[in-house]
Amino acid sequence: MIPVLGLLAGIALGLVLEPTIPQGLQPYLPIAIVAAMDALFGAFRAYLDGNFNDRVFVVSFISNVLIAAAIVWVGDQIGVGSQLSTGVVVVLGIRIFTNVAAIRRVLFHA
């Protein structure tokens, strides 16, 4: 319940306040979002499996986002930023799909 409320509140906050992201951080936001989605779906699956844990979720979310952003940052420094962000999106995308498929199986038995 808390996470859903938090998500909605966050979306509302973002829409209302419209904060401007510093120019330097803008390339990393999409990647951070993909990493956050990965953490979210992983957490939901763990929740359905019955072993969700707040601490693991918080830590995995933060580390996911930081690592994804760091990979892209390093890529930017050595000139392959867009390729590396594609790589991050592919890897996290596969994980998201796998998790969503598992969630779907649990929820709909299909």
């Binding site: 808390i2 996470p3 859903v4 409320l5 938090g6 998500l7 909605l8 509140a9 966050g10 979306i11 509302a12 906050l13 973002g14 829409l15 419209e18 904060p19 992201i21 803008q26 936001l29 999409p30 951070a32 979002i33 956050a36 979210l40 969700f52 844990n53 707040d54 601490r55 979720f57 918080v58 979310f61 933060i62």
Partner: peptide, 27 residues
């Protein structure tokens, strides 16, 4: 491990994720 620990960090992370979605879409 106990399940009910770290409720506030959880809420905060959820808030951050939601805000990230919204901000990115708005941008």
């Amino acid at each position: 491990g106990g399940r009910a620990r770290l409720r506030w960090p959880l809420a905060l992370v959820a808030l951050v994720i939601g805000a990230m979605f919204a901000v990115s879409a708005v941008e």
